[in-house]
Each structure stands twice: as structure tokens, then as C-alpha cells.
């Protein structure tokens, strides 16, 4: 009996050491399931209706511009819907768990706070991925429908869709960070501000260089490096004109986003790891 117990204990500890990935996957799958069952993906219905309407009516109203308008409208709607999900679901990811005390049963299991944060984050990113993939396919199909046949834009918009997805991943991280220490309303507001300011990063840099006072230069320079540069991830208008981002631009955007997400999740884990769940 003692041997069985010892084997069991050894097995359980071995499971902990190699189980980080399993636990993160389990939490991510559960967060994805939550989003599905809470009908988050219902926004797709609205998107499809919007796109169908655009494909049928706008094309008739704007001679020769229909494909550009479909891409513009489709990708902008994709970004907007994604931002809403990233902000409103993102800020509730952790808060709901604390509020409903579901977190008590999770942390009584061998789950670290970092694993929990990363799992929740991946779960929402998966939801956004499904959202973006379905919407992207919808836009491609709408382009084929409007063109009455194959059109290169149906493929060339996908790098822009990848950049939109990266932007949503960054915003989800920001929402998660704020929700790890503040209320959902404040977190949503702050994330929305970051989304707006992030699109004007170049202006922040310009302000930093043009300011006379060293204090102001330091402030705007600091903000430029601290806040996510979302302008670099925005490629909707060029995509509507059939332009493709060059590979170094795309690679730099992917690398920048991944590093930014890594840093932001580390800070979130650090803050969340010190929280008392009263």
C-alpha cells in the first residue's frame, strides 16, 4: 500500500512538471467553450447580414468601386467587431472568475496564476481567430460574388486580415492586463483609449521630437514606446487597393506583436500573482 501511495505521489508530481502545457490547454479550451456558449460568435450573423447587404446594394451604387468598398467595409467591420469582443469579453475574463468565485476551485488545483492568465488569453484568442477566419472567408466570398468569378483580392486581403488579428491579440492582452487590477468598466474604457491612441503612435513620436521641454519629450517618447503601435498593424486601405504588405513589414509586425504580448502577459501575471481573492 505504501509503495502504491509513493508511486501515485511520484506520478502526480511528474504530471505537475510537464503538465503546464496541458493545464493551459484545458483552461484555453474552457474559455473558448465559454465564449461559444455565451453566444459571442453570434456577431458573425450580423457581419454576414452586413456583408450580404453590401454585396447586393453598394456594388450597384458605386460603379467600378464595389470590390474596394467590400474590402474596406468587410475588414473595418472585422476590426470593429473584433475590438468589441477583445474589450468586452477580455475585461470580463478574469473579473467574472473572481466575482463568481469560480477561481477558488481552479487555484485549489495545481494551476499557477500564470497558467491561468495564459490559458484564458489563448482561449479568447482562439475565439477571435474563429471570428476573423469566418469573417475573412465571408469577405473573400463576397468579392467573388461581386466579381461574378475569381478575383485576386480574395487572396491578397489575407495578410491584412493577419495584421487585424495581431491587433486584436494585442488588445486582448491589454484588456486582460487592466482587468487584472481594475473594474470591468474602467478596464474597458482604458483599453478603448489604448486602441485609439495606439493608432496615433506616429503622432506621439512626432510630439516627442517637436516638444521643447525635456519633460514633455520624455513623456511622449515614453508613451510612444509603452503603448502598442497599432498603426503598424493597420493595412485595410492599402489592402482595398490590392496592395500587399512587404515581407519585412509583415515579419516585423508579427515579431513586434508577439514580443508586446509576451511582455504584457508577464506584467499581468506579476500583478495577478500578488492579488488576494477576499
Amino acid at each position: 500500500m505504501a509503495t502504491t501511495q509513493a508511486t501515485k505521489i511520484r506520478k502526480s508530481f511528474a504530471a505537475t512538471e510537464r503538465g503546464t502545457v496541458w493545464r493551459i490547454i484545458a483552461i484555453a479550451r474552457n474559455a473558448f467553450r465559454e465564449a461559444i456558449r455565451d453566444r459571442v460568435l453570434y456577431n458573425l450573423v450580423l457581419f454576414v447580414l452586413l456583408l450580404t447587404g453590401a454585396a447586393i446594394f453598394i456594388g450597384q451604387l458605386s460603379a467600378g468601386q464595389e470590390k474596394k468598398i467590400i474590402v474596406d467595409l468587410g475588414l473595418s467591420a472585422m476590426l470593429l467587431f473584433g475590438v468589441f469582443i477583445a474589450i468586452f469579453v477580455g475585461v470580463g475574463l478574469v473579473f467574472k472568475e473572481i466575482e463568481r468565485r469560480t477561481i477558488y476551485t481552479i487555484f485549489a488545483k495545481p494551476v499557477s496564476r500564470g497558467e491561468f492568465i495564459v490559458g484564458k488569453y489563448i482561449g479568447l484568442c482562439l475565439t477571435l481567430l474563429v471570428n476573423v477566419m469566418v469573417m475573412g472567408t465571408g469577405v473573400s466570398l463576397a468579392l467573388i460574388y461581386v466579381n461574378r468569378g475569381w478575383h485576386p483580392l480574395a487572396i491578397s486581403i489575407w495578410p491584412a486580415i493577419l495584421l487585424i488579428y495581431l491587433e486584436l491579440m494585442v488588445l486582448t492582452g491589454v484588456a486582460l492586463l487592466f482587468s487584472s487590477f481594475s473594474s470591468p468598466a474602467l478596464s474597458a474604457l482604458l483599453t478603448f483609449f489604448i486602441f485609439i491612441i495606439g493608432h496615433f503612435s506616429a503622432d506621439l513620436k512626432g510630439l516627442a521630437t517637436s516638444m521643447g521641454s525635456p519633460g514633455a519629450r520624455w513623456l511622449f517618447g515614453g508613451l510612444y514606446y509603452l503603448l502598442p503601435n497599432l498603426a503598424n498593424l493597420s493595412y485595410i486601405t492599402p489592402a482595398a487597393h490590392g496592395r500587399l504588405p512587404n515581407v519585412p513589414h509583415l515579419a516585423a509586425a508579427v515579431l513586434y506583436s508577439l514580443i508586446y504580448i509576451l511582455v504584457i502577459l508577464s506584467v499581468t501575471t506579476l500583478i495577478f500573482g500578488r492579488r488576494n481573492f477576499k
Binding site: 505537475t16 485549489a108 495545481p110 494551476v111
Partner: peptide
């Protein structure tokens, strides 16, 4: 945290 493999709550 590995201790949590052996407890329930």
C-alpha cells in the same frame, strides 16, 4: 503548487 496534486478543496 505541486502540493495541490494531493489535496482537494
Amino acid at each position: 503548487i505541486s502540493m495541490h496534486n494531493r489535496i482537494g478543496y
